[in-house]
Structure formats: structure tokens, C-alpha cells
Design a protein around this nucleic acid. Sequence first.
RNA 1: GGCCCCAUAGUUCAACGGAUAGAACAAAAGUUUCCUAAACUUUAGAUCCAAGUUCGAUUCUUGGUGGGGCUACCA
Length: 603
Amino acid sequence: MYFCKKKMNIKQDISNSIKEFASSKHSTELLDNEIQLSPTKAEFDGDTTLVCFPLLRKIKMSPEALANEIGEFLKENNENIADFNVVKGFLNLSYTNEFWSNFLNKNFNNDKYGHFTQTEAQKIVLEYSSPNTNKPLHLGHIRNNLLGYSLSRLLKQYGYEVIRTNLVNDRGIHICKSMLAWIKYGNGETPESANMKGDHLIGKYYVKFDVEYKKEIEELIKKGMSEEEASKQAPLILEAQELLRQWEAGDKETVELWKKMNQWVYDGFDVTYKQLGIEFDKIYYESETYELGRAIVEDAFQKGIFTQREDKSIWCDLTDEGLDEKLLLRSDGTSVYMTQDLGTAKLRAEEFNADKMVYVVGNEQNYHFDVLKLILHKKLGFDWGEGIYHMSYGMVELPSGKMKSREGTVVDADDLMSDMIALAKETTMELGKIEDFESEEAHKLYEMIGLGALKYFILKVDPKKNMMFDPKQSIDFNGNTASFIQYTHARISSILRRAKDENIDFSELKGVSNISKIETEFLNTIFQYPEIVAEAAKNYSPALIANYTYEFAKKFNQFYHQIPILRESEKDLLSFRLKLSSMAAMIIKNGMWILGIDVPEKM
RNA sequence: GGCCCCAUAGUUCAACGGAUAGAACAAAAGUUUCCUAAACUUUAGAUCCAAGUUCGAUUCUUGGUGGGGCUACCA
């Protein structure tokens, strides 16, 4: 339900008037979906526009003539419509000044503007981040975390209950690789002795493993072995596999080491998450969940839903769905990734009684999630399986191509963040506007600006699409950036501060007679905010919020340059503009909050 | 080979099937005795190709071309 009821009402209200027009003047009943009302483009006069073409099928006349007839009718019969104009088949309608004054009076102080409450509460389990504990986080993980976290805020604001989860991939052959390399080449090195973050230290050994492993493969190939054979027979990989067997058998020494090294990684991750501003409600560890799906699979096999091959492996046949057969239990009885995901999905569905389970995972796993949903919903018949949604996002590419941890072509998350903060500091000092700040306050501002720029840079792009990041070009503080939006907020704050200092009371607004073009444009932008939030939530797209907030800030700056605010002497106009400004600050702050970006009072 | 995704100014990104395809950066030119110039105002510049559906296509369909992903008893 909308807090800003007026908004939904006016669209519906106009629609109703148009239906009334059709039935009384043309004896025709129109359907809601035939009445297309959209925001008027800035180059035309008006607040909302009716596209008349779809109506011509039922009312046979020229688009212009029909638009004019409807315009006349609405001006006569709808109290909110002050005027209209027609361009081709487009009917541009303007709202009355009373409408706008009422809107502002009602909402200028409403900090729940753009918030929703759903009539039927929905519970969503949202999974994001889900890192491996064998290397530090990089830019790709940053995109995942920012999307997930922003989505959690967006969905909450849309009125859902959201449980933020993280499934840490803390076991498996890749973890054993870095463990083995540390055993062989580490000489007992620790984060303290190396003066390195734990996750970076482990990452170093993961790379080391790969280097040595490749050397061994080269050797074997020289001796005449095929590449495929060599990669299976290299001593290092055999040792890593042995280490995994020992881990699975619960070998004390191996488990001890595993715990110690994982803890190093967690301590490192904590720092990264904290700097990035990411949080979770519940963390799952794969070492505790990886056996979960087995029972489901065995049960379904007993029921004849899955099939077994001669070598005892168990498969799900999805050929009738246009997909392949999917392995669920290996011939040695061990489970695979899919098995575990079946298990954790069921665990969560039961644990939280969730209506939806959203997974923020890269688009390289599209097939995996298609299969997961299909098996749970169609094959196993779980109703909640239908509520699975893979929030599939595109990769972050570098000019040199894809990032690869093992090859060292990654943009490290910690480095990138500290670079951004340093850059923000440099720029801020150059501009020299915060000389009165204490050093702690100043540092907070640098973080706000530097991290804001990074977050916005990532989140403004449509999540579904791949995006490009050029490490040689630093992220901007000008133009379509977080800094621009933050700056706008600081500007407005400054105005509101002054108004307060001068004891200007703008809570009373009787109504204004002359609202300028730029002001109605800006009012319209404000007016659309709740719809944007709804749209973004339905599409799982923080990018819509980001781009809207930018457009919004830009409109404010244009307004600010053209129209005096505090210098306005006429009382009602002053109140009107201060109310506008106050709402503007609120919306910018809220939009950026959804993105996980803070805004300053001064910068 | 099979399946999926993408293609828009020099570059990075926008555009529920709707008006003259928007921004930003980079380039060129302007605006500070005036509420913060991290701002504002100009100029120049793009829908990969070919058909089709439609009153109307960047958007939908088909076929090409180019790029990416998936296609493991890895996760």
C-alpha cells in the first residue's frame, strides 16, 4: 500500500475520468490496460501524458481530435486537471497548483515517503557474497556483495521481510590446495609474521600451488604424457586429493590446520566486509551443510524419481524439460554441488518458512539455477521451489579480459577501496572546503566519498549486464557519480541549516499561484519516487534507484541555479521552495541509503 | 557441435512497443561581487547487418556477423 496515496489515486482518478468519457461520449467501455498514462517528457508542457493511439481501435477518429476531446472533457470534469495540450497523438495534462501544494504539504515531512507495506507479508531469504576461503575478495565479489546488500534494503523498503544469508564455501579441493602449498612452502608463516591480512596470505599460497602444479604438469608432458593425463597424475594434485580425504575422514591434524587457516581468512574477510559496509543475518558454512542433500536424493531415488546407473551413481533426467541429465551422487556415493544446494534450499525453506529464496550469483551459473529450481519444484514437488529466484548478474571485465585469481589478473577489493579513499582525500583537500573538520570527521567523509564513488559506479549498471572496469582510469568524482549526488545533498543541507538558523518556519503553505516550469518538473520527479522504488524492487534492480537518484540530483541543481530559494521574499513561495528542498534532501538520502551509500551534511 | 546471454556517440552507461534515442567522461566555448563551481549553460557526436510484425521497433520474430558464458563423477 502506498503512503503517498494521492499519487496512485490521481492516475486511477484520471483513468476513471477517461473511462467515463468513453462511455458517455462514445458508448465504449475501456479497459485499464488500454489507458496508457506516462510521465510527460521534459521538452513538452504537462505532468502526465495519455498515449491515444491504443484507443483508436475502439473509438474511430483521428488521434489529434480524440486527444483534444479527452483533454476538454478532463479539464471540465476532473478537478485535478488544470490544462492540456496535444502533440500528435499525445495528450499532455497539467495538474493544478492546488494539487501540488497539497502534495507537498502532505509529504514534505514524511520520512516514510517511498516506503511500502505489503498487504500480505512476504518473507525472503536472500543469499549473497558466498565466498571461497582460499583467496581474498576481488572486484567481482564486490559487485556481488553490493548488489546483494542493496537488494536487501530495497526489498525491505518495498515491505518484505528479508533474511540476509551468506553460504561460505569453506571446504573442498580448492581449500586443500592452499593448505597443501602452505604446508610445503610456508615455513610456518602466519598473518602476523608476514604482516599480511589472513585472506591475502592464504591467497598467496593458492597462487603458489597453481604455479608449482603447472610446473609439474610441464615436466610430465615433457616425459611424453598427455596434458589431460598429466593434470590428473601430477604429484601435487594427488597430494591435495589425499588431504581432502583426510579432512573428510576427520583427521585431527588436518582439521586443526584447516580451522586455523580458515580463521585467518575470516579475520581478513571481516575487515573487508566492514569497510564495504556489508552485513548478514545468518552465515552458513558449507562444511556443515555439504552432506544435507544426500537424504533428499536417496529418498527420491527410492520413489523412482531419480535413476541409478550401473556404477551406482544417481542422476536426475531432465531431458523432458529440454535439459540434460544431472548427476546428484557420484559412484562413490559422495555428493556434488547440486546435491548440497538441494539440501540447503530445503533447510532454509523449512527454517524460515520463506515465500521466496533469492540467490545473488553470477550469470555463469544460470544453468545450475535453472536445474536447481526445476528439480525442487517440478521433480520433487516442493511448492516453495517455485519461489526460487536466481538474481543473475553479469561479470566485471577488465580491458585485458576476465579476472582470474590464479593468474593474478584481479582487482583486489581491499586495495581498490583504500585507493578510492585516498583519492577522495586528495580531491577534498584540493578543494579545501572542510578546513573546520576534526580529523576523524574528515576521515569519515573521505570514506563516504571514496566508497560511495565505488559503490555507485558498480550499482548504476543494470545488474544483468556485464560491465567494464579499467584499473588505469580511476573512478570519477564528477558527472554521473555518487559524489555529485552527495554534493547535492550537502548543498541542500546547507540551505536547510540556514533556514533553521534564521528561524524560518516553512511548515505552513497555503498555496502558490505561479510555479515555474523547472519547479513542476522537479515536483514530478519527486512524485515518481515511490513508483521507481516499486519498479526497482520488482525487477531486483538497484540500478533503477541509482539512475533515478542521479537524474533527481541533476534536476535539483538546475532548479538551484535558476531559482532563488532563501532569497525569495514572497512568504508562500519561500515555504514552497523550502518544502521542495526538504523533500529533495530526504529522497536523495533514502535513495542512496538503498544503495548502501551515505551522504554528508557538508563536503 | 549443442544451449544461453550481449551488441547504442571516441569511451563508460540509459531508454514499461511511443514524441526529435538520453546522460556522463573525453573534445570545443562560456558562467563565480549571487543559497557550496565536486555546480550550471552551449557546441559537435551513436542504435552491428538484412528481412518481418506494428499506426509506431534500440526494444518483439527470423536469418547473418562479432563478443562472452555454460556444456566435469569441480564449486
